[in-house]
Amino acid sequence: MLEEVIPVTPEILSGETAKIKYEGYKFITLSCVEMDANNVEILYHFDRDLQLKHFRLAVPKKTIIPSISPIYMAAFLVENEIQDLFAIRFSGLVIDFNRTLYLEDEIKNTPFCKYTVVESDSREISSPPDFDE
């Protein structure tokens, strides 16, 4: 039912996104769908003159996907949201909330997955930014 869907892989994602930005597309959002116990699918939605274009990225859970927020800055919020609610992590986010955008620190499971995945001690990957001079 979706008009124009391009399947992508994590390797070519950044390149394809940069291309589509050059073509003048506006970023809309990402939709993450849990397919089964081990797989999720992420749809990237773009728009140009009210014509939609989508990327479809199928990955197993617990994958680290390169973030597109260095290309489209607006993507950082939704990528943080997916990090919170699904068992997917993004690398290279412009602003990384480290699974605390919606959730509290102590929550380790993934609320929007029917087959929940417990996140390990992944919060220690990066410490919060230090504002002291």
Binding site: I28, S31, V33, E34, A74, L77, V78
Partner: peptide
């Protein structure tokens, strides 16, 4: 974004609201 599979409940309902898009701005 609505994904259904012919059952009573939807598979996925994704809502992107305007303020979500306007916060980066």
């Amino acid at each position: 974004y609505i994904k259904a599979n012919g059952k009573k409940n939807l598979d996925r309902l994704r809502i992107r609201t305007p303020t979500f898009a306007n916060i980066p701005a």
